[in-house]
Amino acid sequence: MELADRSVGFLLSLTSISIFTYYTFWVIILPFVDDEHFIHKYFLPQEYAILIPVFAGVTLLCFLSVFFGVVKLKSKKKKA
């Protein structure tokens, strides 16, 4: 089981580092590169640099709110 945990941890770390590197390059470095440069075809338009994290944050808050609500409802049923 320890090998499986390490593999999953390594995969999650590699994914997180890849996403962080892509997003950092996309938001911080790419605006200073000429628009005609070939590197722009590998990245989404700049508008999505704000929309994607906002959508992810709102989705996360919705799921956390639903989870908290379900836990509160279950705890009330146990008390009664």
Score class of each variant (00 low, 15 high):
27 V>W: 01
18 S>R: 05
6 R>W: 14
23 Y>A: 12
31 P>Y: 05
52 I>V: 12
74 K>I: 11
67 F>C: 00
31 P>Q: 04
61 L>N: 00
3 L>F: 12
67 F>I: 01
25 F>C: 09
78 K>N: 11
36 E>F: 15
67 F>S: 06
41 K>E: 09
34 D>P: 05
9 G>R: 03
41 K>Q: 11
31 P>N: 11
68 F>H: 14
6 R>L: 14
3 L>W: 11
61 L>D: 00
62 C>E: 07
70 V>R: 08
9 G>E: 01
54 V>I: 13
34 D>V: 04
36 E>D: 15
45 P>Q: 13
66 V>K: 05
63 F>E: 05
46 Q>N: 09
35 D>H: 13
66 V>A: 04
51 L>M: 09
30 L>Q: 08
77 K>P: 09
19 I>Y: 01
4 A>I: 15
21 T>V: 06
28 I>F: 06
12 L>D: 10
78 K>H: 10
34 D>Y: 04
27 V>P: 02
38 F>M: 06
16 S>M: 10
31 P>F: 03
24 T>C: 03
61 L>C: 10
50 I>V: 10
26 W>E: 03
79 K>A: 13
46 Q>A: 13
43 F>V: 08
31 P>D: 05
29 I>T: 07
17 I>V: 13
68 F>G: 09
49 A>K: 08
36 E>Q: 10
68 F>P: 04
52 I>T: 00
30 L>T: 13
62 C>Y: 10
40 H>C: 04
55 F>V: 11
65 S>C: 10
25 F>V: 14
62 C>Q: 01
14 L>T: 12
47 E>Y: 06
62 C>P: 02
45 P>Y: 12
38 F>N: 08
18 S>V: 08
12 L>F: 12
72 K>P: 04
71 V>Y: 01
54 V>Y: 06
21 T>M: 03
13 S>D: 10
35 D>E: 15
